[in-house]
């Protein structure tokens, strides 16, 4: 099952869990399941249209991917803020 790694503040919104095993066939599937399990994360990573937010990066095994990217059970996802965000 893919593992999703979160940092603060997302980790805090997911009950303090840094690493979560979440089933799903694509990045979007996994992140929507994350939202369902931890509703406070809703809207933080994915926008209203199911796309990864412009200033959030999702990496699969170190490679930047989008919500449509397919996953295998051994994949590791990291969700990180982009260097283009912030004020």
């Amino acid at each position: 099952m893919p593992v999703v790694t979160l940092r603060a503040p997302l980790k805090d919104l997911a009950g303090g869990n840094r690493d979560l095993e979440i089933a799903g066939g694509t990045v979007g599937d996994v992140l929507r399941t994350l939202e369902a399990a931890w509703p406070k994360t809703t809207g933080w990573i994915l926008d209203e249209h199911g796309a990864v937010r412009r200033h959030v990066n999702v990496f699969r095994n170190g490679e930047r991917v989008d919500a449509t990217t397919a996953l295998t059970a051994d994949d590791r996802l990291q969700v990180l803020p982009s260097i283009t965000g912030g004020t």
Binding site: L10, R53, G85
Partner: peptide, 8 residues
Amino acid sequence: TSGFYGPR
């Protein structure tokens, strides 16, 4: 509005 995670 978070520069990363959007408005709420």
